[in-house]
Amino acid sequence: MKIIKTLKNAKGVLLCVPLSIALYGCQQLPPKAVVANADAELDAPVKKVGNQQLLVRGPSGEGVIPVFASGDINAVAPDVTKVFIVIHGTLRNADTYFATGQQILAGAGSLGKGTMMVAPQFLTAPDVNAFSLPARSLAWTQEGWKGGEAAVGPVPLSSFAALDALLEHFADKRRYPALSSVVLMGHSAGAQILQRYAVVGRADPILTRAHIDLRYVVANPSSYLYFSDERPDSQALAGGACPEATKWKYQLKDGPEYVSAQNVKTLESDYAARNVVYLLGEADTDPYKHFIDRSCAGMSQGPYRLARGRAYFDYMKKRHPAHLKQKVVMVPGVGHDNLKMFTSNCGMAVLFGQPTPKTCPVITGAK
Rank of each mutant, 00 (worst) to 15 (best):
L214I: 11
N345A: 13
Q28F: 14
D164P: 07
Y278I: 03
L351P: 03
M316N: 07
K8I: 15
K173M: 07
S158W: 07
S180Q: 00
C296F: 03
I73R: 04
K5L: 11
G353A: 08
T124V: 01
Y250D: 05
V277G: 01
L207E: 13
Y312G: 09
Y312P: 07
T208K: 15
K113H: 14
V128E: 02
F131S: 05
P18V: 00
A366D: 08
L267P: 00
H290L: 10
G144I: 01
K358Q: 15
V183A: 06
G309I: 10
P134H: 08
K358E: 15
F227D: 10
T124S: 12
H290P: 06
K265A: 14
A151L: 09
L351E: 02
N338K: 03
E282P: 10
T115I: 11
C346V: 05
E268H: 06
D213A: 07
V67H: 02
A165Q: 12
V76M: 04
V155F: 11
Q301K: 11
A10V: 14
H187W: 03
K265R: 14
R175P: 09
V46N: 01
A261F: 06
G309A: 06
K340E: 03
N338L: 01
D39P: 12
D284Q: 02
A94Y: 05
D204V: 08
N338C: 05
L55E: 15
D213P: 01
Q52D: 11
R308N: 06
L54G: 04
K47E: 11
A366E: 10
E230V: 14
K253F: 09
D270R: 15
Y216W: 10
A36I: 10
L225D: 07
I206L: 15
L237P: 13
K82Y: 01
L23E: 06
L19T: 05
A36M: 12
G353I: 02
C242T: 05
N338T: 12
A36H: 14
T246Q: 09
R209F: 12
K289F: 12
C360S: 08
L7V: 15
F170I: 03
T364I: 02
Q103A: 14
I193Y: 05
R202W: 08
P205F: 08
H336G: 03
G101P: 05
P59E: 12
V328P: 04
Q28I: 12
D79C: 06
A108D: 01
T6L: 12
